[in-house]
Design a protein around this nucleic acid. Sequence first.
DNA 1: AGGTGGTCGTTAGCCGGCTAACGAATACCA
DNA 2: TGGTATTCGTTAGCCGGCTAACGACCACCT
Lengths: 138, 138
Amino acid sequence: MTDVIRLLTRAQKLLRTATDDAMRPHGVRIGQNLVLEVLWQDDGLTPGELAARMGVTTPTVVNTAARMEAAGLLDRRPDPRDGRLVRLYLTPLAQAAQQPIDDARRGIADHALATLTPTELRHLTRALEKIVQQMEPH
Amino acid sequence: MTDVIRLLTRAQKLLRTATDDAMRPHGVRIGQNLVLEVLWQDDGLTPGELAARMGVTTPTVVNTAARMEAAGLLDRRPDPRDGRLVRLYLTPLAQAAQQPIDDARRGIADHALATLTPTELRHLTRALEKIVQQMEPH
DNA sequence: AGGTGGTCGTTAGCCGGCTAACGAATACCA
DNA sequence: TGGTATTCGTTAGCCGGCTAACGACCACCT
């Protein structure tokens, strides 16, 4: 019963470690990955918006963004219309990292799933969707 | 391709959060859960042995054990034969927590997997095993 | 127009991972 | 036997999550 949960945890940890190892040479850490993914598609979001899309809390985004700013990956600029808001913009450095990081992530996914048949992949996806739907708030 | 990885990450996070929420009323946090699981079965292990069985590093166990000692969950006693070793022993408090915590974990697993058919559960397990085997250091 | 309530980001402080560097104790070998 | 290498646990310091408390700013309503 709970064995499959342990398996899932183990798999996720292995994937996380592999991803972090692959990102580090590009000056990006695992937690910054999601920020980049979202901003690559939609630059200039606020910490709150980012947190919602990433599924983490706002303080997590604030801390991560501070590290990324220190690393030269993004700029933090106040919203001209609403003094409460802060908008996060990627630097050219962060934009240039998109291609190699995407490639690395795809490579890891390919390797992790290499021994699964298309049918098994479909089944896996379906099962995970069911779990997520079951556990998601409301 | 990488979507299923995201799903897996999301599912694991939901499970982790639910587990932590269920443990906290019993005075146990999520990171201490694995320590208890191992020591319930095999008391008096060293930090290094625990780390190996848990799949984490030794410093992680040392830190977690320090918090658990402060919480009255375990005792840290030197090995009488080898002065380098430290052995970790569960207190009665920790032993008494086994039943309710096991129940809670089983309840979470049941709920998470409730919408899966036995066949789907088998497929899920098989797919996760393949991923883990593929990614584990040979 | 002014006060009040809600909405932001930030800070502080915790837990749980990690690597690197260290110090103490044992084990081994000349 | 004595010196050196190895094996432990610990400490320091980082990243990435979280909650709670706070302060600034806006919006709304009288």
